[in-house]
Simulated assay, not measured.
Amino acid sequence: MEHRLNTANHKETSDRIAHLAAVVLRRAGVAQLEKELAGSALAQHHTSKQTSKAIGRLAAKVLVDHASCHEAKELAGCVLSQVRHLEGTAPAR
């Protein structure tokens, strides 16, 4: 028998990262990927929302991409630290 893990992540976006996300969203010519990361970070500012698995995968790709800018990596690190961990299963005891 398998049990669903309930390891909700209670981290939220800091005020500094939320400000960075807002700046990124207002900047002209920002890549769609950066906008998605910024939007995710803002959605998690002072809320209980968590990063989806899809955005988590996107953030992981940004962190290993040498061409990604510093702001994108900072947003990626933030949203990756807030990924929801509810999909795993644990073996029966």
Rank of each mutant, 00 (worst) to 15 (best):
E34S: 09
T51S: 03
A60L: 08
K61T: 08
N6R: 01
R27Y: 00
P91T: 11
H10L: 07
T89P: 08
E74C: 10
A8V: 12
A67C: 05
L58Y: 01
A67G: 09
R26T: 05
T47K: 04
L80N: 06
R93N: 13
L37D: 05
Q50R: 14
A43C: 12
Q32A: 10
A72N: 04
A60P: 13
R16C: 09
G88T: 07
V62N: 06
L80A: 11
A31G: 08
S81H: 09
A72Y: 00
A72P: 06
K11F: 00
E12P: 00
L58C: 09
L37C: 09
N9R: 04
L86G: 15
E74I: 07
G88S: 11
A90G: 11
S52N: 02
N6W: 02
E34D: 11
H46K: 15
A41V: 02
L25K: 14
M1K: 09
A21C: 11
V64F: 01
T7E: 13
A41E: 01
A21W: 04
E12G: 12
G39V: 08
A43N: 12
H70R: 15
L75E: 05
E36A: 10
N6T: 07
R16A: 15
Q82A: 09
A43L: 10
H85L: 13
Q50D: 03
A8N: 12
V83Y: 02
S14W: 03
L86D: 15
Q32I: 04
P91N: 13
A28K: 13
H3R: 15
S52E: 00
Q50A: 06
H10I: 02
A60R: 14
V24R: 10
K49V: 05
A90M: 12
L5F: 00
R16D: 14
I17G: 01
A22F: 04
H70I: 13
K53M: 08
L58W: 01
C69H: 11
S68A: 15
A60G: 12
A41S: 05
Q32D: 05
A92T: 10
M1R: 06
A54V: 05
Q32F: 03
A21R: 03
G88P: 03
A60D: 08
E2Y: 02
R84C: 09
K53Y: 03
H45I: 07
R57A: 08
H70Q: 15
H3Y: 01
S14I: 04
H70T: 14
L20N: 05
H45K: 14
L42V: 06
I17K: 02
S81T: 07
G77I: 00
H3M: 11
E71S: 13
L42F: 01
A21L: 05
T47E: 01
A22H: 04
C78Q: 12
E34W: 03
C78A: 14
K53D: 15
R57G: 11
K61P: 08
A90R: 08
I17V: 12
L20A: 04
H19A: 15
R26H: 09
I55A: 11
Q32R: 14
H10D: 10
H19Y: 02
A54Y: 01
A31N: 06
A92K: 13
T89G: 08
C69M: 05
H46S: 12
L63Q: 08
V83L: 08
L33E: 14
E2K: 11
T13Y: 02
L42P: 03
L63F: 04
C69K: 14
K73Y: 02
N6C: 11
L5I: 13
L80G: 07
G56P: 09
N9D: 06
T7Q: 07
K35Y: 01
L37R: 01
